[in-house]
Computed example of a mutant assay.
Amino acid sequence: MFGMKFFFYSLEHPPVHIHVRNADGTAKFEINPVRLIESHGMKTKDLVLAEALVEENKELISTKWIEFHGK
């Protein structure tokens, strides 16, 4: 989506969060509330877009996290 890959790892830890990767770097966002936890190399405009996409899809992200990792 927009040249970004959104994913989580199989051995994740709370709180619910998602990783984002694009050609320039990586970032990690907490889901509730949506906030940037860390980034490495991603441009500001890409971080803004990624955060908006995470906000728009936070219910889906949370559901998939719980399906995979449990509560």
Rank of each mutant, 00 (worst) to 15 (best):
M1P: 14
F2V: 05
F2S: 12
G3N: 05
G3V: 07
M4P: 00
M4N: 00
K5P: 02
K5S: 11
F6C: 02
F6Q: 01
F7H: 09
F8G: 06
F8H: 01
F8Q: 05
F8K: 01
Y9I: 08
Y9F: 12
Y9H: 08
Y9D: 04
Y9M: 12
L11A: 10
L11Q: 04
L11V: 03
L11R: 04
E12W: 03
E12I: 08
E12V: 09
E12F: 00
E12Y: 02
E12S: 10
H13D: 11
H13G: 04
P14Y: 06
P15E: 08
V16T: 05
H17Y: 11
H17Q: 13
H17L: 03
I18V: 08
I18Y: 14
H19D: 02
V20N: 07
V20Y: 11
R21P: 01
R21S: 10
R21H: 03
N22Y: 00
A23P: 03
D24Y: 01
D24M: 02
D24E: 08
G25C: 05
A27L: 02
A27M: 01
F29T: 11
E30K: 06
E30C: 13
I31V: 14
P33Q: 14
V34P: 09
R35H: 11
R35V: 08
R35K: 09
L36M: 15
I37P: 04
I37M: 10
I37N: 14
S39L: 11
S39R: 05
H40F: 06
H40T: 15
H40W: 10
G41H: 15
G41T: 13
M42N: 01
K43R: 14
T44A: 15
D46Q: 04
D46T: 14
L47P: 00
L47S: 06
L49M: 15
L49F: 02
L49T: 06
L49G: 00
A50H: 03
E51A: 10
A52T: 05
A52I: 04
A52W: 03
A52R: 15
V54T: 13
V54L: 12
V54F: 04
E55V: 01
E56K: 10
E56W: 13
N57F: 05
K58C: 10
K58N: 07
E59T: 07
L60G: 06
L60H: 13
L60Q: 15
I61C: 02
I61Y: 01
S62E: 10
S62D: 12
T63W: 09
T63K: 12
T63R: 15
K64W: 13
K64P: 02
K64N: 11
K64Q: 08
W65P: 14
W65T: 11
W65A: 10
W65Q: 10
W65D: 15
I66E: 14
I66Y: 05
I66M: 07
I66W: 04
E67P: 06
E67T: 13
H69V: 09
G70D: 06
K71T: 06
K71C: 08
